[in-house]
Amino acid sequence: MTTTTTPPPVHGGDGAWRAVRAELRRRTSLKVSLAVVVLFALMTVAAPLIGALGGWGPEEFDKSAVDPYLGGLPIGPLGGVSAEHWLGVEPITGRDLFARVVHGAQVSLLIAFAATAIVVVAGVAAGIAAGYFGGRADAVLSRLMDLTMSFPSLIFMIAMMSVARDANRTLLMILVIGLFGWPGVARVVRGQTLSLKHREYVDAARVGGSGPWRILARDVLPGVAGPVIAYTTLMVPGMIATEAALSYLGVGVRPPTPSWGQMIAESVAYYDTDPMYFLVPSLCLFLTVLAFTLIGDALRDVLDPRGGRT
């Protein structure tokens, strides 16, 4: 919006990554964050395996773990924590919380990452096109960005999710979240491209007879990579939160699929009768969002010292 002129960032390259590694050594919080992200990423990739460790499937009922005469509250302390159920069970169904939170990580993070990927690809493409080619392309794309950003996005996402009933919910959520995210990236990239466009080395390449695609790929793209990476990392928490919000409002994943948002939505009302049920998914959401924010901050400091605020 008000990106006046952004000074050149450290170009993606050896220097930048060395700086990232140095930063990593310096900050403990960053190490912890990375560990958290790696842990949840592992959970995402190997959810069935890790989930199987506990011995329960995410959709498997355990009638013996809940008391139907108390509205299906888990039997035992801490929401039914036992050797059998490591994190306790869900009230009413007796489904294993460990299995569900692990599989929920898969769904939540998959949606967040995939939506981020869409946003990055679309945003970079649109931003470069607008910035590099200028003229009519710029005018049209900028209008489109303004228009998209004028949409009340959450309201629209909720509505779109509730319109399509039969579609693949996960895929739909990815697309819908992606649809409203791209203008942010596009603006960053556009500004960056504008400032790179007339750099000496780009001019040199042009004089040297390189075509526009070659220039884009070889000279401009690496130049915008830094800020985009930083911006993207900071965007992931928002994506996770959006998935949670949609699932919370009941327009997210389809039962019995678990996702963190769905788990939080159903557990909020149990906060005083079964706090464990509510705390487990909430803490997971909190930790992941926190970790990505910290990593994003660090990356921004290194890769894009003055950017990242559109």
Binding site: A244, D272, S282, F286, L287, V289, L290, T293, D297
Partner: peptide, 24 residues
Amino acid sequence: VGAVAAASLPVYFTSVLLIYGFIR
């Protein structure tokens, strides 16, 4: 540090905490 942590708190969590603390 406080700001990063607070920004990561899901609004459901904050709300429930507030309701429990100030009302219940």
